[in-house]
Amino acid sequence: MTGVVVVGVVPNPRGEAALQHAVVEARRRDARLVVVNSSRGDALVDEEYLQGDRLRQLQADLTAAGVSFEVRQPIGRDVAEELAAAVEETGAELLVIGLRRRSAVGKLLMGSAAQRILLDVDCPVLAVKTPPPEGTG
């Protein structure tokens, strides 16, 4: 095992798509997978921060997938800063992020977090979209 793949994960279809692609890339590269699930810590309940059964399920799924992994759950900085820090600390060869599907107008502008990630990290970034909903082209 030589490299590291970092992935940003949130418990929604965008995060699940990113995780699926990251697992494939980690296997293909024989790399360790570093999963980052962060919270700014500014809310009493953060629905995107994995805890309890959801965290245990993620760990079980990754174990079943047969990849070496580490789950990081930092609190305090925003996701772009946390992902950039994880890439730098691990010397990652790839970062995988999920992107929101956007309307025609929304496509003119990329989300601020995704834009900052692309500008801040020094490794290739795989940006993954969720599949379109059933019945839409």
Rank of each mutant, 00 (worst) to 15 (best):
G3L: 08
A43M: 15
D46T: 12
V87C: 12
T63M: 11
Q20H: 09
G8R: 08
L62A: 04
R40L: 15
P74H: 04
P124C: 06
V128N: 04
Q51C: 06
D53W: 03
D120M: 11
R40P: 14
P13W: 03
G111M: 10
E93C: 10
L126E: 00
Y49I: 05
R28W: 08
R27P: 08
L83I: 12
A80Q: 07
R27Q: 12
D122C: 06
T2Y: 06
N37G: 10
T2Q: 11
G41V: 06
T136Q: 13
P133T: 02
F69T: 07
G91Q: 03
G106H: 01
A43R: 13
V79Q: 12
E25D: 06
S112R: 11
L58S: 00
E82V: 04
T130R: 07
E70H: 08
V121G: 00
L99S: 07
T130W: 00
L33K: 00
M110N: 05
C123Q: 01
R102L: 09
V45P: 08
V105M: 09
I97H: 02
K107R: 14
V5I: 11
L33E: 09
Q73I: 09
E82H: 08
D42M: 08
G8T: 02
V34W: 03
E48F: 09
R100T: 14
S112T: 15
G52A: 13
R101G: 11
E88K: 08
Q51I: 05
E134G: 00
G106M: 10
K129V: 12
V7D: 10
S38R: 12
D61G: 03
A113T: 15
I97R: 01
L83K: 04
A18Q: 10
Q59K: 12
V96K: 01
F69W: 09
